[in-house]
Design a protein around this nucleic acid. Structure first.
Length: 513
RNA sequence: GGUCCGUUCGUCUAGGGGUUAGGACAGUAGAUUUUCAUUCUACCAACAGGGGUUCGAUUCCCCUACGGACUACCA
């Protein structure tokens, strides 16, 4: 349709932490921008000062940085269309509202909140199908369409609070093409006379959004499906402002649903369902009690950003091939709006976990070692990189999250204080105990300290005792690690070191008899 | 209530007028691993219902049902 440069924007409100639905919206915008060589813009939509939450802006920034979404223009980075915060753009909006009034597409309304409530109550009582401020009801309200011009002038001059409303036509079909849903047609009679300018002088979302998208030369508006019902209003705004020829293309993304079925994923679901709904941990306050609250984040829960991104990309989109694992670069190559699905997606915890395990195992030991080292540091244990790499190497096939390394591998650093009871009951007996004592003895003077060497020594020792290795192996593991399961036993012993193993075996023999 | 959007295995989805309706996650079973995990193999499992159109519909159309979003001087 047009050759104009691709410019997309992600436009969150700083009303709290950004949840993963928002992250996905940002991601799709980003993928499209990069795919088409366009520009990715972030604009903060903070026209409602009442809902402003301190820290939310930084949180959004940090979230996007963590998942690897780069912004070409933003409040922090600036850009040719600065400022990128609507509160700082406040003076820009009024003129467009005035223009709409001058052109007869908007009007002043002086109704008080009480009057509006009364009107809605009256309409509801009369069983009017859509009780709203519209082409019919505005005739009964106090606005510049019903009041004499002099009175309107007086009211304005007297400083009586007013809003500016869009004058939506009575009978008109409003249609637009959505890149995901095709033609969407809505009759103007179901659209209400939305407030454009609030009585505090701030624009509402609708006006600010259209003005900014136009001024910032946005080519594609990719947002959640919750915006679909107000899209016709936006189309009207573009038309009345005279910007229809450069109206962006719309794409309304399917919603992310709660895993248990009903309703869109919300900020509270994480706590209830036991998985994070935020990219990063969020420290907030409870709206009712004022108590501090903590909401889990993917980052803090041990998810790797590439796993989250891969998972999120596949919630509502797929490449049409069997490939499931995609780096950001590959996503950019493969992405297209046409392949975004229409139907909403339920969040699947198992799948994210699977992605995480995949990406974790794909990492090198050198990359993974710091996770273990850091966790050890928290427990006051020092560990060298080389040793951490050894441990991580035998452990990474069996963990889902980096923090599991510590949980699963602590016996490398702390001698067992108790022994897996089940195994002890089944495998431990005087004969086994005696055999392990002999092995401990042999170990203390062993020349060979590789896993292979320790294994050979073990087999020889057991044979000399008249035992099959299989009869003692489990007991050996429990004696050395306390655990009933773990990675290859002799690898484990080799990492532990013969001296340590000797001590542990002797301790176990003494304790378990 | 009204407007709009949607509906393929439990979940994410592919597909498309004639297919054994494919893949992935989960689940189950088996193999490997002396353990657990990994890995491998197999299995389980879906076109919401009813009408059309058609030689033929899961695919196209309509209706119903169900689900969802929206319905603020919030975004």
């Amino acid at each position: 349709m047009s050759e104009r440069p691709v410019r997309v924007r992600f436009a969150p409100s700083p009303t709290g932490p950004l949840h993963i639905g928002g992250v996905r919206t940002a991601l799709y915008n980003y993928l499209l921008a990069r795919k088409l060589g366009g520009t990715m813009i972030l604009r903060i939509e903070d026209t409602d000062q009442n809902r402003f939450v301190p820290g939310a802006e930084d949180y959004i920034r940090e979230s996007l940085e963590w998942v690897g979404i780069e912004l070409d223009e933003s409040p922090w980075k600036g850009g040719p269309h600065a400022p990128y915060k609507q509160s700082e753009r406040k003076p820009m909006y009024k003129q467009y509202a005035d223009q709409l009034i001058a052109d007869g597409h908007a009007y002043y309304a002086f109704d008080t909140p009480e009057e509006l409530d009364a009107m809605r109550a009256r309409l509801t009582a009369a069983k009017v199908p859509n009780p709203q401020y519209n082409s019919i009801t505005r005739a009964q309200m106090r606005n510049s369409l019903t009041l004499p011009a002099e009175e309107v002038q007086q009211l304005l001059e007297a400083g009586v609070p007013y809003v500016i409303r869009l004058k939506v036509p009575r009978k008109e079909e409003i249609r637009f093409q959505d890149m995901i849903r095709g033609w969407v047609v809505v009759h103007s009679s179901s659209v209400d006379d939305k407030v454009l300018m609030k009585s505090d002088g701030m624009p509402t979302y609708h006006l600010a959004n259209i003005v900014d998208d136009h001024l910032m030369d946005i080519s594609h508006v990719i947002r959640g499906e919750e915006w679909l019902p107000s899209a016709p209003l936006h189309v009207l705004l573009y038309r009345y402002l005279g910007w229809e020829s450069t109206m962006p293309q719309f794409a309304h993304l399917p919603l992310l649903l709660k895993p248990d079925g009903t309703g869109k994923l919300s900020k509270r679901d994480g706590d209830r369902l036991g998985f994070p709904v935020f990219a990063l941990e969020w420290h907030g306050t409870d709206a009712e009690t004022g108590e501090p609250t903590v909401s889990r984040g993917y980052r803090e829960d041990g998810y790797l950003p590439e796993a989250l991104v891969n998972f999120l990309a596949f919630l509502g989109w797929n490449p049409g091939t069997a490939q499931e694992i995609f780096s950001m670069e590959e996503l950019i190559q493969a992405f297209s709006i046409e392949r975004v699905s229409k139907s909403p997606a339920k969040f699947d915890q198992n799948k994210v976990k699977w992605f995480n395990e995949h990406y974790l195992r794909a990492k090198s030991n050198a990359e993974l070692a710091p996770y273990l080292i850091d966790a050890l540091k928290e427990h006051g244990i020092a560990c060298e990189q080389a040793r951490a790499e050894q441990i991580v190497s035998v452990m990474k096939e069996r963990v889902s999250f980096p923090q599991d390394f510590w949980m699963e591998a602590r016996y490398f650093f702390q001698a067992p204080t108790e022994y897996d009871q089940h195994v002890v009951e089944k495998k431990w007996n005087p004969q086994v105990s005696a055999a392990l004592a002999v092995y401990a003895e042999a170990l203390s003077s062993a020349a060979e300290t590789t896993a292979e060497g320790l294994k050979t020594l073990f087999n020889q020792t057991m044979e000399a005792q008249g035992l099959k290795p299989g009869q003692v192996l489990q007991a050996l593991r429990v004696a050395a690690t306390g655990a009933g399961a773990g990675p290859d036993l002799f690898e484990t012993l080799a990492i532990l070191g013969t001296a340590e193993v000797t001590t542990r075996l002797q301790t176990a023999v003494a304790k378990l008899g």
